[in-house]
Measured scan of single mutants.
Amino acid sequence: TTVKVNGTKYKFDTPEEAQKFAKKAADKYNLKVVVDGDDLRVE
């Protein structure tokens, strides 16, 4: 599972880890998590 934040992709072994990271990033930058198929985007 990958998470894309500000054009940078981060790869995670499990969707749970990816979800946690995406949520933290979204909170930090005051953005929202967008599900894109198997991957997540923070925008």
Results as ranks from 00 to 15, higher is better:
Thr1Leu: 09
Thr1Tyr: 15
Thr2Met: 08
Thr2Glu: 05
Thr2Pro: 00
Val3Asp: 00
Val3Arg: 00
Lys4Thr: 15
Lys4Ser: 14
Lys4Arg: 13
Lys4Cys: 15
Val5Ser: 01
Asn6Thr: 03
Asn6His: 13
Gly7Thr: 05
Gly7Pro: 00
Gly7Tyr: 05
Thr8Pro: 01
Thr8Asp: 06
Lys9Val: 15
Lys9Asp: 11
Lys9Ile: 15
Lys9Ala: 13
Lys9Gln: 11
Tyr10Pro: 01
Tyr10Gly: 01
Tyr10Thr: 03
Tyr10Asp: 01
Lys11Ile: 14
Lys11Gln: 11
Lys11Pro: 04
Lys11Trp: 14
Lys11Asn: 09
Lys11Arg: 12
Lys11Val: 14
Phe12Arg: 00
Phe12Trp: 01
Phe12Asn: 00
Phe12Cys: 09
Asp13Phe: 07
Asp13Glu: 10
Thr14Ala: 04
Thr14Arg: 03
Pro15Ser: 10
Pro15Met: 14
Pro15Val: 12
Pro15Ile: 12
Glu16Arg: 05
Glu16Ser: 08
Glu16Trp: 07
Glu17Arg: 05
Glu17His: 05
Glu17Trp: 02
Ala18Cys: 02
Ala18Ile: 00
Gln19Ile: 14
Gln19Asp: 06
Gln19Cys: 15
Gln19Pro: 01
Gln19Val: 10
Lys20Thr: 09
Phe21Glu: 03
Phe21Ala: 06
Ala22Met: 03
Ala22Tyr: 03
Lys23Ile: 08
Lys24Asn: 12
Lys24Glu: 14
Ala25Met: 15
Ala25Asn: 08
Ala26Met: 04
Ala26Gly: 04
Ala26Thr: 03
Ala26Phe: 02
Ala26Ser: 06
Asp27Glu: 14
Lys28Thr: 07
Lys28Val: 07
Lys28Cys: 15
Lys28Phe: 14
Tyr29Phe: 12
Asn30Ile: 03
Asn30Met: 07
Leu31Lys: 06
Leu31Trp: 11
Lys32Gly: 06
Lys32Thr: 14
Val33Tyr: 04
Val33Ile: 12
Val33Thr: 03
Val34Pro: 01
Val34Met: 08
Val34Gln: 07
Asp36Val: 10
Asp36Cys: 10
Gly37Glu: 04
Gly37Ile: 04
Gly37Ala: 04
Asp38Ser: 11
Asp38Arg: 12
Asp38Pro: 11
Asp38Lys: 13
Asp38Phe: 11
Asp39Gln: 11
Asp39Thr: 14
Leu40Ala: 03
Leu40Lys: 03
Leu40Cys: 06
Arg41Glu: 05
Arg41Leu: 13
Val42Ile: 10
Val42Glu: 03
Glu43Phe: 08
Glu43Met: 10
Glu43Asn: 04
Glu43Cys: 13
